[in-house]
């Protein structure tokens, strides 16, 4: 395929230190524990997983908001892993983030115009206080469905949905190539969710940026993504194009997740097999050995506790890490 790789992570790891064991060994939270993925230009990669599996952390690590412990991040053919804050500056225009919480992500003491325009002035695209800056901000606001007469309002005068649009406008104002949507719609109610998702999809069509769409909502991810990655405890379990993943899931965890999507059709629902996972997600300070899913996997065997499964290709663009990929679950 001739698609151009925009961003690549190679065995990316991020371990947060959390004190020491009694014998003096440092303890770490393995939030991201060796993730390799590629994001192509203009595509949407969905990333799903339970709470605490490291979805948000990887989004932020890619943007270098956290310093990775190990592994590389390559953006647009440049290895940015060891870039200093200063070196990152020009790249900040290219990669942006939309946050989960529309309430804490906007500075309560700045007007909408200042919030959206700040980075434009900072990067010297427009002069601070100039008419061009205001025009551009108004244009971006209009694109994101916020009426431009609100430019002098403060965040507290908006609803959650409007605030989220302002957050999107802020990310979009710089005209980035790549946006991390970190649970961008999770805090909104369903009707607003669909509006915002459609807005994101329309913007992608118009400007051709790539999204890393992080969510725990499978139906939302299904709607917007081209490819979907399933994460479990800091690792990728499965990565496949959307259609392939939903029709032909290989990893037992993916199967369990998919079986948990509520269906409105009663007829289908009656015949549906639900795979119930037992127990909670294990601690990522002391994750289970080998395959991390072995404690909850319905088909786990001895090998799963001894040998870490390889990240294998099972179809076009379809990768999975499991010893018993595709096995029936009874």
């Amino acid at each position: 395929m001739s698609r151009k790789v925009l961003l690549e992570t190679k065995d990316l790891k991020l371990h947060f230190p959390t004190g020491k064991r009694k014998n003096g060994k440092p303890l770490t939270v393995k939030a991201v524990d060796g993730i390799s993925l590629k994001i192509y230009e203009g595509e949407t990669l969905g990333l799903v997983g339970e709470s605490g599996c490291g979805k948000s952390t990887i989004g932020r690590t890619i943007l270098k908001l956290y310093k990775p412990t190990e592994g590389r991040v390559v953006f647009d053919d440049n290895d940015i892993t060891d870039y200093s804050t200063k070196q990152m500056m020009p790249l900040r225009q290219e990669m942006q983030i939309i946050f989960q919480d529309p309430y804490s992500s906007l500075n309560p003491r700045m007007t909408v115009g200042q919030i959206i325009g700040e980075a434009l002035a900072e990067h010297g695209i427009y002069k601070a206080g100039s008419q061009e800056l205001e025009d551009h901000v108004k244009k971006v606001m209009a694109t994101c469905g916020v009426d431009d007469y609100m430019i002098h309002r403060y965040p507290h005068q908006f609803s959650g949905g409007q605030r989220q649009r302002i957050g999107i406008a802020r990310a979009l104002a710089l005209n980035p190539k790549f946006i991390v949507c970190d649970e961008a719609v999770s805090a909104l109610d369903v009707s607003i969710q669909s509006q915002v998702i459609n807005l994101l999809a329309d913007l992608q069509k118009e400007y051709g940026m790539a999204y890393l769409f992080i969510s725990h909502d499978l139906s939302v991810v299904k709607h917007i993504s081209d490819r979907i990655g399933v994460m479990y405890l800091g690792n990728l379990a499965e990565l496949a194009p959307k259609k392939e993943l939903y029709e032909n899931p290989q990893h037992p965890y993916t199967k369990a997740l998919l079986s948990a999507i509520p269906v409105t059709d009663l007829e289908v629902n009656r015949n549906k097999q639900r795979i119930l996972l037992e127990g909670d997600i294990p601690s990522n300070v002391t994750p289970p050995p080998a395959c991390k899913f072995n404690t909850r996997c319905p088909i786990a065997k001895d090998i799963c506790r001894k040998i870490t499964p390889e990240w294998e290709k099972v179809g076009e663009d379809h990768f999975v890490a499991c010893h018993f990929k595709g096995a029936e679950i009874k």
Partner: peptide, 14 residues
């Protein structure tokens, strides 16, 4: 810890 401060970092504010 508020996200708007993280946002300033992502936006490249000095």
């Amino acid at each position: 810890e508020q996200e708007f401060i993280t946002a300033t970092k992502a936006l490249g504010i000095s």
